[in-house]
Amino acid sequence: MGTKVMYQNVWILGEQEVGTVRQVSFELLKRGRALADKRESQLVAVVMGDHLAENELQRLIHYGADCVIAVERPELRHFLPEPYTSVLTVLIRKYRPEILIASATTTGRTVAPAVAVVCHTGLTADCTELDIEPETGNLIQTRPAIGGNILATIKTPAHRPQMATVRPHSNKPLEPDESRRGEIIRETVNATNLQSRIKRLGFRENSEAVGNIQDAEIIIAGGKGFKKDENFRMVRQLAELFPDGAIGATRDAVDRGWISYNHQIGLSGKTVSPRFYLAIGISGSVQHLAGIKTAENIAAINNDPEAQIFQVADYGIVADLFEVLPLIKERLATLNLKQEPEVSE
């Protein structure tokens, strides 16, 4: 660690998949832009991958970066902890960023802690808010902890870079500006930095039916109010009535074996921010609520008027879900029929 003065600029760790920049990177750029403006410094996007096309990297600039540092190697095609940690560390030591934010994805949450150890600096996980302390220029990091019961504000006063991961989908990207110009630096690294004792043998994609609930615009979620395995089918049936409706579940529903773990929403599952979240038979434990805080619109159906879920709902119905759901299904089916008259049975 050097003296603080030697460190400058805000970095975001961009993520790519087969050469295409992931949405989460654009979200980070918005966070990074605000921080860089406050620090009156540059915003730099770092991307590792293989076949990183110029026009794809330009998009990072359109979304707010002043500069892109790209490292292109076949060994970096897919995320592997060792080469990603090693390359990022080399870049940090060379350029000395003051702040480095990564997305709290499976990639970000894996590489960031290893980099923080190697660079001897602080890392704050899964932040929901980032800001700059005017007097010191320190990064103010806010994150939920203890099951979402508290918000902790954390600083890294004496170490650089100040590192944080940010919840995916906890903010929307800036509008892209195609007139923005910036520099693209292609960096090279030594072969020793690309070695991996882990080999990637293959990949099994999620089945279509599962989808990625973290990217879903509409999520219909069920909890233990469904009482039985066979009743949980009603969640799927309702989700099918929405365009691209995805299925979510509480920990209770998953633990009862009604649906697989990758549908689980909450602190021990996934954080989602759909445009619409419908919680059915979900009481709304702090754990679950922590996973849906950034949903744009929340509706809830529960027979318990005291259920916590109503505290966060924009629209709630206090009633027996087995009575309400058939009515909703009926109404939605009629609506769909009106909109798509060519679909008939």
Partner: peptide
Amino acid sequence: GSPTRVVKITKPQVARRGKIAAP
């Protein structure tokens, strides 16, 4: 020996609370 410091703990605000129908 810890690079990070917790400087403040606050209680999260549960805001929203829209229309609740109790038929």
